[in-house]
Simulated scan of single mutants.
Amino acid sequence: EALIQRSMRDVRVPVLTEAQYLEIASIRRELEGFAAGRAAEMAGPKEIRRLKKIVERNEAAAVAGRWPQAVKYNQEFHFALVEAAEMPILLAILSGLWLRMGPLIAGYYAREQLGLVRHHQAIIAACESRDPAAAAAEMRADIDDAKEGIIRYIQSFTIDE
């Protein structure tokens, strides 16, 4: 569930449990790694320019401390990569997963103020050199790198309750 309606005026975003987050992260790791590899095979100059532009905007937003925008560009990059892979069905599947974990990712990065683009730049480089294995590995690393911090973030909610 992306939202829980507790009454007519009370709609909330549920906090994922640690187990739910880990399940979604492992699914994303495989599916988005697959998509990144496919994008490295399929992406042309136009798609690569789009990915670079998103990363530039992401970096600028982070430097300016505009974390909601930076997180938005992070998601935009992930989706643009799947579009470059020409996988619309996968994009629909991932949209549902991102809907569930988007608020968690946004809150985590806004609190921690960590860079979001290191692996994204490496993924673009892998697309430019047509290296599907490198693109897939960088996407998996991108998802893996946030795991421990996001788990701590989830635990901070459960400790407070």
Rank of each mutant, 00 (worst) to 15 (best):
E1N: 11
E1D: 13
E1L: 10
L3F: 12
M8A: 15
R9Q: 13
V11A: 08
T17H: 08
A19M: 10
L22Y: 04
A25Y: 05
R29S: 10
L31F: 11
A36V: 01
E41H: 07
M42P: 00
A43E: 01
G44E: 14
P45S: 14
E47Q: 14
R50W: 01
R50C: 05
K52H: 05
K53S: 14
A60M: 08
A60I: 03
A60E: 15
A61M: 07
A64T: 06
K72C: 02
Y73K: 09
N74R: 12
H78T: 07
H78N: 12
F79Q: 10
L81F: 03
V82K: 00
E86S: 12
M87K: 09
P88K: 03
A92P: 00
W98Q: 07
W98G: 03
L99W: 11
M101Y: 07
R111T: 12
R111N: 10
E112V: 09
E112K: 13
Q113K: 15
L114I: 08
L116K: 02
R118L: 08
H119Q: 11
H119F: 07
Q121E: 15
I124M: 04
A126D: 05
E128S: 06
D131W: 02
D131S: 14
D131Q: 11
D131C: 04
A134N: 02
E138N: 14
M139A: 03
A141E: 12
D142W: 02
D142E: 07
D144R: 10
D144N: 10
G149M: 08
I151R: 09
I154G: 06
Q155N: 13
S156L: 08
F157I: 08
F157A: 11
T158D: 11
T158A: 13
